[in-house]
Design a protein around this nucleic acid. Structure first.
Lengths: 197, 197
DNA sequence: GCTCAATGTTTTCGGTGTCAACATGACGGA
DNA sequence: TCCGTCATGTTGACACCGAAAACATTGAGC
């Protein structure tokens, strides 16, 4: 009664990982709106309801993807931090901004997933922690070790705004059109130069 | 055969406007994801397919709402521009930023609708023009009259990033949590003070 | 008065998420 | 070894949605 004859087990054994992989692939090629649990299931040769054993919701699935993206993004930031450790603060921030925007330009779809409405509503602790980690990494860029209090510093807040706003411009064709800047890297250069000259 | 006996006409006569109104209401109370054409139609006592005569798509409906929001937002910006015409540039930018963020804080849902994924993909000329108008208004804030060329100036780009990024922080509970700033206006103050001290 | 375009209705189709009931396989204790 | 239990996958059903086609009603202009 098996659909895929080459599958040796009734129990797939690896379904959760494969779902995540396939979901990322679909999102990357067709955008997040095209992601449907049923389609993922079908393309994995599995019944339409199998994923429900691993992800309660469509939102839960997206959440898992976001966690992964957040992790990799933070790793990127940490790399920049390490690389420019001996540089002055302005340079560190400049490079961090450039790195973030470069990442947005290189992985536009993943970047958009992070700001998807479904993600906004997710109150999952892990996501909140990931965000907080991200913020603390930025604080490190600024030389402030995290000082017990959880409130973020004003310079970090400023950096956040620039970063997120720049990303928004970069990722939104409508806004891109306004800047009349065809080339991503060119737009990034202008943003970075203006922010941290 | 009429559903609503108090409706005098077979032709509703005002359906398009009512759809827009009801849609805005639903979005404001339940969020944009809860907006479905069928629900709007039902709550207006009209067949589920009636709206299709006025809006080709769900996206087209949202687009119309966005156009309205964009218009009002630009009006707000123009007001600030007028009010602070004699002020120095820094003050003008400062107040514009404050106005935008204040608006986001006061109308979070409308602000979020503007950055909805469905909107991003819309290539409608009117939306692009509205965005461009918005940008030109910002240029006015900076004292640059629009100088023929359509490319935006770097300072305006910087202002855009700050604005959009600040809005993103303000509107995203996840990011808000990171700032540990419970109060909207307080967060706005910090952002504005740091950006244009 | 007739015709026609605009507008609303009904019906139908494919797609989606979610739930409940059931099947199968793995694993561990008696 | 056998049996029970749990995790995992399957099947079927339901309600909702957007979209399209065919049909009904209304009003306006000739």
């Amino acid at each position: 009664m098996r659909k895929a004859p080459e599958r040796q087990n009734y129990h797939h054994g690896d379904l959760k990982a494969q779902i995540l992989l396939k979901s990322a692939e679909i999102i990357a090629t067709e955008g997040i709106d095209a992601l449907s649990i049923r389609q993922v299931a079908k393309s994995l040769g599995v019944s339409h309801n199998a994923p429900s054993r691993h992800f309660e919701n469509r939102a839960a699935l997206i959440q898992e993807l976001v966690l992964d993206i957040l992790g990799r993004q933070r790793q990127l930031l940490m790399g920049v931090l390490e690389l420019n450790q001996s540089q002055p603060e302005r340079t560190r921030l400049r490079e961090a901004l450039r790195a973030y925007l470069g990442w947005c330009d290189a992985h536009p779809i993943e970047a958009q997933v992070m700001h998807h409405p479904d993600v906004r509503k997710m109150a999952d602790v892990r996501i909140q922690e990931a965000m907080r980690d991200w913020a603390h990494t930025v604080e490190s860029l600024l030389g402030h070790g995290r000082d017990g209090q959880s409130a973020i510093s004003s310079p970090a807040l400023h950096f956040f705004s620039l970063t997120l706003g720049g990303g928004a411009i970069l990722l939104n064709p409508l806004l891109r059109g306004v800047t009349a800047e065809a080339d991503g890297p060119q737009l990034i250069d202008r943003l970075v130069d203006e922010a941290y000259p």
